[in-house]
């Protein structure tokens, strides 16, 4: 079992900036090109997102969202209790706080909270596919889906034995709904389920697939030799991680291969897998790993 300090690495959408979070020391190392700087945060930074030129950091134990701009400016707003995840969709930020199950929608430009809704406490992960939000509940073993437009639960789906992490593997299209991969360490399996789709979207999908003779889509699950508890996807690269052994797996369809062992954490960037080991970041080109 690894006892090294877990360091969360967040990469900007464009891949040109990274934020390495040290939750214990209350600091984030922001790297852009060849320059990097360390900023102190409020108590216990646990997640972050780049939006525009700013970095937004959740300080869990201060119950604050902090904004750091390129010029060293810093501002903050209060969040609900036990904020854990921050995601970006449609130009807005969404923060999920576990204790009361609160989703807060934040305008990053004005840095104000626009809306809030209660969707159930103690989710172990929160993701969006751009239009919908998904919350994963390990105790109840279910996935709650809700449109970001309404912030109201629309569907509850069974999700394995003890689901703890998920990622959007594929965005929705006219032919398919979004595909969500769910890491379940108890079952040692990545479950794949379909995301939410509007009624008109589902109708159009059925019509087009029928027209093309494709039939209904049935995502396939992937089994692992150890209990994977993290999964992440970017572009056509999907990886799963067993944090108890520090083993990182690459998924190709239902096949898996080990690409690193004994590491602290990882992140996906454009064309590369970034690996954190003892506070340092190592870069693996995905092209190389594919050979």
């Amino acid at each position: 079992m690894s006892f090294l300090l877990a360091a969360l690495l967040v990469v900007s959408v464009t891949g040109d900036r990274t934020a390495l979070i040290n939750s214990y020391a209350n600091e984030v190392r922001i790297t852009s090109g060849n320059t990097s700087r360390v900023v102190k945060t409020a108590e216990t930074p646990v997640d972050a997102r780049f939006a525009g030129s700013d970095l937004f950091v959740i300080a869990r134990d201060a119950r604050r969202l902090e904004r750091f701009d390129r010029n060293g400016g810093r501002a903050g707003i209060d969040l609900a209790a036990d904020p854990a995840f921050i995601r970006e969709a449609g130009g807005f930020l969404y923060v999920y706080s576990r204790l009361d199950g609160i989703i807060q929608e934040i305008d990053p430009e004005r840095f104000t909270i626009r809306r809030r809704a209660a969707l159930g406490p103690f989710a172990s992960d929160f993701e969006t596919d751009g239009k919908n939000g998904y919350l994963l509940f390990p105790r109840a073993a279910k996935l709650i889906s809700f449109p970001l437009r309404t912030l109201k639960e629309e569907r509850s789906t069974p999700a394995g034995a003890v689901p703890v992490d998920m990622t959007i593997v594929r965005r929705g299209s006219a032919l398919s709904a979004a595909t969500i991969a769910i890491a379940d360490p108890a079952a040692r399996r990545i479950w794949k389920v379909e995301g939410l789709q509007s009624v008109s979207g589902a109708f159009a999908r059925g019509f087009v697939r029928g027209l093309l003779g494709l039939g209904l889509f049935a995502p396939r699950n992937t089994d692992f030799p150890t209990g994977i508890d993290r999964v992440e996807s970017r572009g056509d690269v999907t990886v799963a991680f067993d944090s108890s052994s520090g083993t990182l797996y690459r998924l190709r369809g239902t096949k898996i291969s080990i690409i690193a062992t004994g590491i602290d954490g990882f992140a996906l960037s454009e064309g590369a897998i970034l690996i954190t080991e003892r506070g340092a970041v190592r870069r693996l080109q995905t092209q190389k790993t594919e050979r």
């Binding site: 006892f3 877990a6 172990s124 390990p138 003890v162």
Partner: peptide
């Protein structure tokens, strides 16, 4: 136990790991 041994970072890492599964 790690905290009692004064090993702050490993204690913290383990606590974060535990609360992933038992935030409730």
């Amino acid at each position: 136990a790690q905290a009692k041994l004064g090993r702050a970072e490993s204690a913290f890492t383990l606590l974060e790991e535990a609360t992933r599964y038992s935030a409730d």
